[in-house]
Design a protein around this nucleic acid. Sequence first.
DNA 1: AGTACCTTGTGAAGGATTTCACAAGCACCC
DNA 2: GGGTGCTTGTGAAATCCTTCACAAGGTACT
Lengths: 219, 219
Amino acid sequence: MKDFTSTPPPVKHIAEPTVRRLSGYLRFLEAFDVEGHETISSGELARAGGTTSAQVRKDLSFFGSFGKRGLGYAVKDLIASLREILGLDTRWPVVIVGAGKIGAALAQYRGFGTHGFDVVGIYDTDPSRVGTRLNGVTVRADRDLEGDIATLTPRIAVLCVPGEAAQAALDRVVGAGIRAVLNFAPTSLVAPEGVTVRAVNMATELEVLAYALTNESRD
Amino acid sequence: MKDFTSTPPPVKHIAEPTVRRLSGYLRFLEAFDVEGHETISSGELARAGGTTSAQVRKDLSFFGSFGKRGLGYAVKDLIASLREILGLDTRWPVVIVGAGKIGAALAQYRGFGTHGFDVVGIYDTDPSRVGTRLNGVTVRADRDLEGDIATLTPRIAVLCVPGEAAQAALDRVVGAGIRAVLNFAPTSLVAPEGVTVRAVNMATELEVLAYALTNESRD
DNA sequence: AGTACCTTGTGAAGGATTTCACAAGCACCC
DNA sequence: GGGTGCTTGTGAAATCCTTCACAAGGTACT
């Protein structure tokens, strides 16, 4: 007798690096699928993701067993499983706070939509930006933020405001019920327990590179 | 007799998370300095950086001892030390490959320059973009890339090209001598030994948030 | 039907990073 | 000038993550 579930193990706590890698596997598999491949081995997946085959198998093993011994993984099935694991079997409404250079660029980024995220609102304090359209969504005044969050119920906010305004923006979206935030402002933010904040910080990325270049004596 | 050096320990290998945190401390300290504070304790720094005081002290201890027991750290001195550690006592010339939405937004990002990085070139294949000016730098044709890298000797390249073009762009800049790359394309890249590639991937960040929201059963 | 070959899934080992806990050092005050 | 209070710097312990190594399971070929 076979069982029905495709994701058996009762998931405990998964390390963030693992989740990041899963996302990377998914990205690669989508391209691999388009190229017409039917199956893939943990070794191939590892090479593409810059890791090892054992790591790939261990990452997946936290959530179930998805492969066939001797064969590898069915590409389409693994894509579906990863989507489910990452919570991408629903679409996620997102608000963008700040319609400056970065906010505008993000709003127009197509990959947003194709990966399961819908921009349902963009907000700015600058009256000259309010009312303009970005990729089909009209920029609204920041005073509409709380009301819109209540009615549109986005689960994720992307902050693209200047550093000085970032903490205030975070406090507002959190106050309105948002519990997951992606912060593009170059400031580290303090959030209450239960709110996940991820930061994308240009300066930090460049500094990590500068450090690597300065210390290239690691063999 | 006192010794001269402010960074005594012969640094072995430092974990990437440590370097990221150091960058974060620096970011916060710069703001803290502007507010007029003279000293800071590891505890305050920890709260700002979302970590613990022991972690802060351990991170710094890899590079030397910068504080005064009972007092804390002198803000200006610690800023200078961190800048030196991260390799920010020189300026770093940077080229941006791709002048689309993201490339253009980055080129106009002021924080670039204020943190020690100079955009010395922007390249694109689209003739309609070549010749336009972005924040004082003229977009040049992609065929100028190799020659410019040879003469301007940037050490870092920022890739803002579409996913399909990213690996080719990486190969070109690496071929021209670049050894540190920041990749904004949503593709994971394969680079030869000795080349550091860091990826900033919108999709991955959002997916980590989606995962967190889907599994908010972690108390 | 059996053999050879390949790849997964996973305990166990090994390494790395974080946290703990406390001695040592410094300033301030009486 | 000794006591008090605070904070650093750091070995040691604990935790977390990765790598190893191999049994188990599947396919293909003879």
